[in-house]
Design a binder for these strands. Structure first.
Lengths: 262, 262
DNA sequence: CGAGCAATTGAAATGGGTCAAGACGTGTGG
DNA sequence: CCACACGTCTTGACCCATTTCAATTGCTCG
């Protein structure tokens, strides 16, 4: 049913990534997603510093890995378009998906900036990223402290998001976890995609992805989605996500922090 | 059995926090825990910038909150001594413990630096922290970008740690989760405490804390600990943690990332 | 000594996992 | 154009790890 011409995550075959060089037609100044990225708060002079350091855009076809756990990727990436998942493979072969990353996400950061990554990153759709060499990035941060600060904020946001996921997975039922994830993905896509605010959202993930992100079996994800569909709350068929009853969804997702009164 | 005179987390009554002013006797240069903190990589001139901004040490008795979710704490804290937990209260009253923080941890970071926190922080023992006013911290980061970067790395480490917890909680059995947590806490305390490398470690947490951190019931934590004790792997009685069979413990904790060969 | 919290233990209930068989859709090759 | 293969999603039946409910035992402290 679903066929996305441009993003086309359905088939893994895409052109094999010829780095688009940086240049006038691809300058940071014109970057359409800048406001969502680590570069958001930069003025023109600072932007030049960054531009001098970056190597241009890279393209990764759906299903390919941006980097693998245990290795150190040469670049830090900012997603310009597409979906990426961060995941960890366990020794028994199981997979834990840590996070779904959308446009604007800054990936490849590690606590030990020059050590190996503890997780892998895989393209869920065809993905275009802006690549910054890891080598020398600290010097850029030195010269552009605004960027270091913004980097800190983004890292913190990732931490908070990880805490939120932890809370759902640790304390919620399958129904709550799934509702929470779908609501979250929908909210985050809205921010980026200024288009169809009402229509169905195309999620480039399978039920197995959902399970691996939430600590559930794909079988049980299927059952729970059916239930949510029968309750007229959300419908996820194929890759199309329809939110039928937003208030009910928020209510089920429920695991929102308790509000401390002041 | 266990009675820690100095740290005394058993009783919540302690002196009510008279801020130790900064001064020659309490200078950053002499800070004993600096290497573990956000200030680690700073040279003397940078350290002066930070010193000028900080207000001195604060003390929080065991059981008191450093800040509450939904509010914005006036300060950012670096733990100089003691244990703190970061936790989120859900609307139904349940609690998810996000992280146990030890000496050197930098807490109070938020993605929206001037907004409310999405989690709370509570002292598990009497805690001494170095307090930096949130107001004006961005200016410090501007002037000392090394610190912003280090800050980002610390947040990233929290994220990675949350990912690791997520993997255990999402995929592991109660036995594995508990083994993982105990091994982790033990390893992290060793780094800080240069003393008793063999003796029992005093954990200032209850079985309910363990449950709330791992998505388990305290009842089931009790049962599982009993099992681990009977298997001569670890013993946690009262607050004393004895590791009886380290290899076995590591093996059970198991949920370590699969190593990608290069 | 009694209050209160933490830890135990038992019995019963259940959410989610496991195993296994089908259904559906889509792309491939004959 | 059809047949087949493969991946994803469904559904059923059974099982088990963990939860829930409830009662008891310690331990610490006032």
């Amino acid at each position: 049913m679903y066929h996305s011409g441009a993003s086309g995550y359905t088939s893994p075959m895409e052109s094999p990534a010829a780095p688009t060089p940086k240049g006038p037609g691809n300058s940071c100044v014109n970057c359409g997603v800048r406001s969502a990225t680590v570069c958001a708060a930069l003025g023109d002079p600072q932007l030049e510093e960054v531009e001098a350091h970056k190597v241009g855009d890279h393209y990764f076809p759906a299903g390919s890995d941006l980097f693998l756990q245990g290795t150190q990727s040469e670049y830090l990436y900012t997603i310009k378009e597409g979906w990426v998942m961060l995941y960890t493979l366990l020794q028994d072969g199981r997979r834990q998906i840590n996070e779904f990353c959308l446009t604007g996400a800054f990936i490849g950061c590690q606590s030990d900036m020059m050590g190996p990554s503890s997780y892998s990153a895989q393209a869920l759709t065809g993905v275009t990223v802006c690549a910054l060499p890891r080598e020398g990035i600290d010097a850029v941060f030195q010269r552009v402290p605004e960027m270091a600060v913004r980097f800190a904020c983004i890292a913190t946001k990732s931490m908070e998001s990880a805490f939120a996921t932890l809370a759902t997975v640790g304390r919620g039922t399958a129904r709550e976890r799934i509702a929470h994830l779908l609501a979250d993905l929908e909210a985050r896509s809205q921010v980026v995609q200024t288009e169809s605010s009402a229509g169905p959202l195309a999620l480039p993930i399978t039920q197995e992805h959902i399970g691996d992100a939430l600590g559930l079996t794909s079988v049980h994800v299927s059952r729970t989605l059916k239930q949510l569909r029968e309750d007229d709350i959300v419908s996820l068929r194929g890759h199309a996500l329809h939110i039928l009853d937003r208030p009910a969804l928020m209510d089920v997702a429920g695991i929102t922090p308790h509000q401390t009164q002041t």
